[in-house]
Design a protein around this nucleic acid. Structure first.
Lengths: 111, 111
DNA sequence: GCATTATTATACTAATAAGTTAATTAAACA
DNA sequence: TGTTTAATTAACTTATTAGTATAATAATGC
C-alpha cells in the first residue's frame, strides 16, 4: 500500500462521526465491540462494519480475548495526518501574521 | 453546519489523492481551474467536481477574474484537522516513551 | 456579432458506502 | 450437551461518489 493509499484510507475512515467517536472511546483504553457499540443508536453489525473500516485503515488493531475481540487504538495513521497538515502550517501562520499586522495597524491609526 | 459536519466534509474531501494534489498546487498560490486540471489524466468536468467538493468543505475559496475562476487555498479546515489530531498526541508520545525506555533497557542489559 | 477560451451543467454508468434484518460462528458456562 | 453471549457474515436497499461524453453558459477579443 502506497503512502497515498494509506492517507486515502485514513482520511476516508475519519470522515464519519461514529468512527471518530469510536476512536475517542478507545483513547480511554481498549474495549470490546459491544462496549464500543453501546453509545450508538445503530445495530451491532453496523458498528462492526465501522470497526472493520478503522482496522483496514490501521487506526485500530484487535486482539482476541476469550469470546471478546478487544480493540486498541493505533496512532500511526493519525501521526501521518498530523504530519500532512504540517505542510500547510507556514501558510496559515503567515496569514495570521498578516491579520495580526493589519489589526495592529488599525489600532495604531485608530481606524 | 455543526463542527462534526465540518470535520466530516474536510476529512471526506481529503480522502482523494487528486484533491490533496490540488491543495498542494494551491499552496504555491492561486490558480485557475484549467491550470489545476493540467497535471491530471482526467477530464475537466471531473476536476471541476473535485474543486466543488473542496469548496464545499471550505478548503478553497473562489474569486472571479475575467473569464477565469481563481481558486485559493483556505486553511481553516486543515487547522481543525490538525487540532483534532492533537487530542491523540499524548497517546502516541507516551507509547514512544515506552518504546524508548524498552530500547534503552535492552541496550543496558545487552539483550 | 462571432469565434474562442474557460468553466459548469446534464445525463448517464459503475462502484462503493451505510444501514437494515436474519442467519451463522465461536467461546463460555451451567 | 445445550444455552447464552459476542461478534461476524450474508443478502439486500438506498444513497452517494467518481468518472465519462456532450451540451450549455459566459466572458474575451477579433
Amino acid at each position: 500500500m502506497t503512502k497515498d493509499d494509506q492517507l486515502d484510507a485514513a482520511f476516508s475512515a475519519l470522515a464519519h462521526p461514529a468512527r471518530r467517536a469510536i476512536l475517542a472511546q478507545l483513547a480511554q483504553g481498549t474495549a470490546s465491540v459491544n462496549a464500543l457499540a453501546e453509545p450508538f443508536d445503530m445495530t451491532l453489525p453496523a458498528v462492526s462494519k465501522h470497526i472493520r473500516v478503522l482496522e483496514h485503515a490501521g487506526l485500530i488493531s484487535r486482539e482476541k480475548d476469550a469470546q471478546f475481540r478487544l480493540c486498541k487504538l493505533e496512532t500511526a495513521p493519525i501521526q501521518e495526518i498530523a504530519s500532512w497538515t504540517e505542510r500547510y502550517r507556514s501558510i496559515w501562520e503567515a496569514r495570521f501574521d498578516t491579520l495580526d499586522t493589519l489589526l495592529a495597524d488599525m489600532k495604531e491609526n485608530d481606524t
